[in-house]
């Protein structure tokens, strides 16, 4: 089999339950390489849970996850992760450069400290997100958008083949949003696969190639225009679905 044909991500029969209450039911997903894919669905649809289950952060009740044809733990080095910005304490005593360097810890291995090369790499990644001037700034003194960029830089330094990002557009300014979109597209054009938890259906068509529509169950996966149909939205969002669909058409 040609390496181009291996799916970047394959999820089979994934079910996740909290206290025996299903949050995700029997999800099957195959994402080809080189696509920019949004994971969308209403609140409580299990978008973040899907991401966390794929990354092995929560244990699924059933199911298999394969990254480039291998189990997650084997191909971990091919994965970059951007958690929700609100998941960490930004008052932690560290600066932007240091946070980016954390992305190197996985490949550094035990006992080794990041060296000069890692620092240079971190600076390059900060430059890519337009944050080079803020390298030494304490992270609590960064704006929401800047914090998000630092998180992106940390994922970039992981030099992954597939990126998972959890709500990178939440609480960021318009400039940052544009910068992030451009960055995502650059990554896609470099042949990387990017999955992004997203909640804004308005921007879906402009930003993404593919969409995964979820509401506990998988409702659809494929090119955005095929998935974001009024019927699908009604299934995902209930009565509001039709309204949202109409709003999107106009």
């Amino acid at each position: 089999m040609n390496s181009q044909q291996i799916a970047a991500l394959e999820v089979q029969d994934l079910t996740v339950a909290y206290h025996e209450k299903p949050v995700l039911w029997d999800i099957d997903i195959t994402v080809p390489q080189g696509l920019l894919t949004a994971i969308v669905g209403p609140n409580g649809a299990g978008k973040t849970t899907l991401l966390k289950a794929i990354l092995g952060l929560i244990k699924p009740a059933a199911g298999q996850v394969q990254i480039f044809g291998q189990s997650y733990s084997r191909n971990r080095r091919m994965v970059g992760y951007v958690p929700q910005r609100s998941s960490v304490d930004w008052d932690f005593p560290t600066n932007a450069l240091d946070v980016v360097l954390m992305g190197r810890y996985g490949s550094l291995g035990w006992f080794k400290r990041p060296g000069k090369k890692d620092h240079e790499l971190a600076m390059t990644c900060l430059e890519k997100v337009g944050m080079a001037d803020f390298a030494n700034r304490q992270i609590s003194r960064l704006s929401g958008g800047q914090q998000q960029r630092v998180f992106l830089a940390r994922a970039l330094i992981q030099d992954a083949n597939i990126y998972f990002m959890d709500e990178p557009f939440v609480g960021v300014d318009a400039t940052t949003e544009k910068a992030i979109v451009n960055l995502l597209k650059t990554l896609r054009d470099e042949g990387k696969t990017v999955l992004v938890v997203h909640h804004d259906l308005q921007t879906l068509k402009d930003y993404f190639d593919w969409a995964i529509l979820l509401n506990v169950r998988l409702i659809g996966i494929g090119p955005v225009q095929d998935i974001i149909t009024t019927d699908n939205l009604r299934v995902a969002y209930g009565g509001r679905g039709a309204e949202i669909g109409n709003a999107l058409e106009t």
């Binding site: 339950a17 025996e20 039911w25 029997d26």
Partner: peptide, 13 residues
Amino acid sequence: QKLTFASHMLTVQ
């Protein structure tokens, strides 16, 4: 519960 839940998962599958 785990077994019951798993059996339901099985039916869904």
